[in-house]
Computed example of a mutant assay.
Amino acid sequence: MPASSTVRRVWALDAPELTVDCSILMLGTGGQEDTIPSPSFLVEHAEGLLLFDTSLATSGAGDPAAAYGPLADAFKISIPEHCRLDRQLESIGCKTSDVRRIVLSHMHFDHTGGLDLFPHAEGFIGAGELRYARTPSSLDAGFFREEDIAAAGKIAWNEVPAGYDHDMFGDGSVVLLSLHGHTPGTLGLKVRLPDESTLVLTSDAAHKRANVEATTGMPFDVDRLNKNASLQKVKLLRTQPGTTVWISHDPRDWADFRPDNGEITSAAELNRAAAQA
């Protein structure tokens, strides 16, 4: 089997949303609100399905306060019924039990809400991330949800050391990127699509394109020095030919790169989505 055929497709699953002041997303900004997606990405590989991040809790669909209490109003959380992670998987013909591997970028609540759906999966997480989530600093303690930490405790995790990029299947098609700094174990994902182009998913190593362009983080980064180094790493990845860097929370990237059906097999589909945006 040619190496390039091992990733068959990627789905950008339709995303719940949060609405926040821009000052939360980037230092030195503020005064207006941004509505940002909270996505999950499903990767189909010859070795099975892999899910990158799990978005917001299905129990909050239609009534975010039922899952998030005061956070629902503070972040103006919106979880339409069709954006439930389990229903997103069903819409493309999958069940939660079909997902064999979970890659968690970090433990903030907008990435961990669906962990309870995957106790059977093999997990991959940045070193120290789960330990930090249980005893966070006061800086970002409000971003961790006890229910998600409990769900994470039922998953068998493999830890990815800081500074190490892990080739998931040994064929170069799916690589876990160490992008720590936002939290101690923040991870990104690099995927080689069937047409040999590369898709990089940054998660919260950056929140907006401007973070990368200015090498400037956000107020709740726990390690400013390593966060800046991770932003520089993302900036370098953007210079590689045939590479698309998708900043998960950036509404422009969501609008520009996501095809209508969410299914991605080539750079042409990413470019076509951008042209139509």
Score class of each variant (00 low, 15 high):
His45Ser: 10
Ile92Trp: 00
Phe144Ser: 06
Ala277Asn: 13
Thr35Asn: 01
Pro219Glu: 05
Asp250Met: 01
Gly170Ala: 06
Leu117Cys: 06
Gly128His: 02
Ala277Arg: 13
Val160Cys: 09
Gly128Thr: 04
Gly28Met: 10
Arg258Thr: 15
Phe41Lys: 04
Leu270Trp: 05
Phe75Leu: 15
Pro16Met: 04
Gly113Ile: 00
Val10Gln: 01
Thr183Asn: 03
Glu196Gly: 06
Ser55Arg: 13
Arg224Gln: 13
Asp221Gly: 13
Ala15Ile: 04
Thr243Gly: 04
Ala72Phe: 02
Ser230Ala: 15
Ile92Gln: 00
Ile36Asn: 03
Leu71Gln: 14
Leu201Gln: 02
Thr265Pro: 00
Thr35Val: 02
Leu270Arg: 06
Val200Met: 04
Thr198Asn: 10
Ala206Pro: 11
Arg209Cys: 07
Val20Gln: 01
Asp167Tyr: 02
Gly123Ala: 03
Thr198Ala: 08
Thr239Phe: 08
Gln240His: 12
Arg134Ser: 12
Trp254Glu: 14
Thr215Ile: 15
Phe52Gly: 01
Pro136Asn: 10
Ala74Leu: 12
Gly123Asn: 04
Asp256Leu: 13
His108Met: 11
Gly62Leu: 08
Asp14Phe: 13
Leu89Ala: 01
His180Phe: 14
Phe75Val: 04
Arg134Pro: 07
Met107Thr: 09
Leu270Asn: 08
Glu33Ser: 14
Arg209Tyr: 06
Asp34Tyr: 14
Leu237Phe: 07
Val43Met: 01
Ala74Glu: 13
Ala206Arg: 08
Glu122Ala: 15
Ala46Met: 00
Ala72Val: 06
Val103Ala: 13
Ser137Val: 12
His82Lys: 13
Gly126His: 07
Val212Thr: 05
Thr58Ser: 15
His106Gln: 12
Ser203Tyr: 00
Phe257Ile: 09
Leu189Trp: 04
Gly126Asp: 03
Glu90His: 09
His249Asn: 14
Glu17Leu: 14
Ala275His: 08
Arg192Asn: 05
Ala210Gln: 14
Phe124Glu: 03
Leu270Glu: 05
